[in-house]
C-alpha cells in the first residue's frame, strides 16, 4: 500500500484505513468496553438524529405535514409497507425491530459521509452483531413458531427426490452463510467507499492531478450517498426476507 508512495519521497501518503481507527474520545489509549470512543460519538449522533426526525419532527402531529414530518412519515410508510409486503400481516408486529435497524443504519451511513466523520457501520463488529442478532432471532423464532417443521425450509419438496439431499445441503450452507454475507455486505460497502474517497483525496497532494482528484471525489461522494441508502435498504429488506422464512418456512 505505502510502498510506492514512500519510494517517491514526494510526501504522498495514503492512509485510507486510518479513518476507521477507533480512538477514545477523551484522550488515553486504552479502549475498554465502556470507554466512550469516536464510534460511541457517532452512534450517539445517529440516535439523536433518529430521535430528532421521528420524535421532534412529528411533535406537532399536524394533519397536513410539514417538511420534517413528511420525511418521517415517508420513512415509516416505506418500512411498514416493506414489512407488510414481504412478511405478510403477521410480520407487522416485528416492524419496530426492523424500523430500528433501518433508521440506525441509514443515519449511521449518512452521518458517516460528513467530512471528518466516523462511520460505525463500516466496522465488521457492528454489522456482524446486527446480522447475527437477526440470524439468531429469526432462527429461534422459526423454531418457536413452527417447531421441527421449520426444518422443512431446507427440504425443497418441489425438487425431484434424488436431488433433495443435495439441495438440502446447499440450503443449509447458504442458510449459515447468510449472517456473514449480510454483515460483510454492509461493512464492506461502507469501508470500500470511504477508502476509495480517501485514496482519491491522497492524490490531491499532487497539484497536477488535484482537479481530477476533486472531480473523482465528488463523483464517488454522489455514489456513496446512493450506496448509503441502498445498503440500509438492502440490509432491511434481507432482514424481512429472513423473517419471512421464519414465519412461513414452506415455500
Amino acid at each position: 500500500m505505502a510502498t510506492e508512495t514512500q519510494g517517491e519521497g514526494g510526501g504522498l501518503e495514503f492512509h485510507p484505513m486510518d479513518q476507521f481507527i477507533i480512538k477514545p474520545l477523551f484522550g488515553g489509549d486504552a479502549v475498554n468496553w465502556y470507554t466512550p470512543t469516536n464510534a460511541t460519538l457517532w452512534m450517539a449522533l445517529a440516535v439523536l438524529a433518529v430521535f430528532a426526525l421521528l420524535v421532534l419532527g412529528t411533535s406537532k402531529r399536524s394533519v397536513v405535514p410539514g417538511r420534517v414530518q413528511s420525511v418521517a412519515e415517508l420513512a415509516y410508510g416505506f418500512i411498514y409497507k416493506m414489512v407488510e409486503d414481504i412478511c405478510g400481516k403477521d410480520g407487522v408486529k416485528y416492524f419496530p425491530y426492523i424500523m430500528t435497524l433501518f433508521m440506525f443504519i441509514v443515519f449511521a451511513n449518512f452521518l458517516g459521509l460528513l467530512p471528518m466523520a466516523f462511520t460505525p457501520t463500516s466496522h465488521i463488529a457492528v454489522t456482524a452483531l446486527m446480522a447475527f442478532a437477526v440470524f439468531f432471532g429469526v432462527t429461534i423464532l422459526g423454531f418457536v413458531k413452527n417447531g421441527a417443521s421449520f426444518l422443512g425450509l431446507f427440504w425443497v419438496s418441489s425438487a425431484p427426490l434424488p436431488l433433495r439431499p443435495i439441495l438440502a445441503l446447499i440450503e443449509v450452507i447458504s442458510y449459515f452463510v447468510r449472517p456473514v454475507s449480510h454483515s460483510i455486505r454492509l461493512a464492506g460497502n461502507m469501508m470500500a467507499g470511504h477508502a476509495v474517497i480517501k485514496v482519491f483525496a491522497g492524490f490531491a497532494a499532487i497539484a497536477a492531478i488535484a482537479p481530477l482528484s476533486v472531480i473523482a471525489i465528488t463523483a464517488m461522494y454522489g455514489l456513496e450517498v446512493l450506496v448509503s441508502f441502498i445498503q440500509a435498504y438492502v440490509f432491511t429488506i434481507l432482514t424481512c426476507v429472513y423473517l419471512k422464512d421464519a414465519l412461513h418456512p414452506h415455500h
Binding site: I22, V31, N32, W33, Y34, T35, P36, T37, A39, T40, M43, A44, A46, V47, V50, F51, L54, V55, P96, Y97, M99, T100, L101, M103, F104, P120, H123, A125, V126, L129, M130
Partner: peptide, 20 residues
Amino acid sequence: TFGNQIFWLLVALAAIYFVL
C-alpha cells in the same frame, strides 16, 4: 475494540428501539 463497539451498539439500538 470489538467489546467496546458491541457494547455501545447495543446501547444505541436499545435507545432507538425504546424511542421508536
